[in-house]
């Protein structure tokens, strides 16, 4: 399954959830869904904004792990 490692990248960039949510234009509740792994899907637009704000590649925040 694909897991989001957003927490790790955010910690590396020293960025809080509030700041990131505001910067990419999503609600803190939605960011929480992403961070806790409850999300079923992520839009390309959201992924693009996260990468832009955190200055990273999609592969940096998405990891494939065996079930």
């Amino acid at each position: 399954m694909v897991k989001l490692t957003l927490n790790v990248v955010m910690a590396e960039r020293n960025m809080s959830s509030q700041e990131l949510a505001k910067a990419i234009g999503i609600t803190p509740a939605n960011l929480s869904i992403l961070k806790t792994g409850k999300a079923k899907a992520i839009r390309f637009s959201t992924l693009g904004k996260i990468c832009q704000v955190l200055n990273c590649q999609p592969g940096d925040i998405l990891k494939y792990v065996d079930d």
């Binding site: 939605n30 960011l31 959201t46």
Partner: peptide
């Protein structure tokens, strides 16, 4: 709907 709600 649930899937849509959990699409960010």
């Amino acid at each position: 709907k649930t899937e849509n709600d959990l699409t960010v």
